[in-house]
């Protein structure tokens, strides 16, 4: 429970930092400068069905779990 509380507090701290400091920041990459970032090859987890399957493969065979990233879409955990 202690670990859970500390994890949540860190999460809330980061979130509050982001929301409260938003007013003073200006976007340094304009929307029209995001062409390269918008390319599908730049996605974290380009194909959800395939990405999720690999998460499942690792989760079933490794002790670690969580914060996998990617695009998700049902785990199919074995």
């Amino acid at each position: 429970m202690k670990r859970l509380c500390s994890g949540l507090l860190i999460n809330l701290f980061i979130l509050s930092l982001l929301t409260t400091s938003g007013c003073s920041l200006k976007p340094w990459v304009k929307p029209y400068e995001r062409t390269n970032l918008a390319d599908p090859i730049m996605r974290f987890g380009r194909d959800p069905v395939a990405e999720t399957y690999m998460h499942h493969v690792y989760q079933a065979r490794e002790g670690a779990k969580g914060a996998e990233g990617g695009a998700g879409g049902g785990c199919g955990c074995n």
Partner: peptide, 8 residues
């Protein structure tokens, strides 16, 4: 791990 579905 469906939570990652929308999240990411």
């Amino acid at each position: 791990c469906v939570a990652a579905f929308v999240l990411l």
